[in-house]
Amino acid sequence: MPAAILVALKFIFVALVYLLVWRVATAVAEHVGAKPWRVLGGPGTGLTVVRSDTQNGLEFDVRRPIVLGSGSEADVRIDDAYASDLHARLDPEEESLTLEDLGSPSGTYVNGKRVTAVVALSRGDSIQIGKTVLEVK
């Protein structure tokens, strides 16, 4: 085997290792450093019930898409007569937490405004479902 070909193959091998490590590096950067919003359990990914007859102080983090509602199929049960069985959906998206009303008759309100489309939430936003109020922490 001519030495020149071996040298070329050597460079190809090292280049392949670099290519693979580069791909891992970009994936790790996406996951860890580049988007601090996505740090689960960090600011803006948790909610606290601040007004409710029975659930004051209830806290939970949104680590995957979850559905709020009064039904047994909801991920987080809202004990409120005005809440629908499956009332609203929270999703930890790329940039921030998002909220979507699932067609509830009584509606979902963010900072007093009725939710008609998917809305991005920020820390301190208040979400109203029936008489229950939750705050993004």
Binding site: V14, Y18, V21, A25, V28
Partner: peptide, 22 residues
């Protein structure tokens, strides 16, 4: 693999550690 190889090996280690700290 030369300096090029050792650097990429250390980078792969660093990525494992960063993932773990994440």
């Amino acid at each position: 693999m030369g300096l090029a190889g050792t650097v990429v090996v250390l980078a792969a280690y660093a990525l494992m550690v960063v993932t773990g700290f994440g």
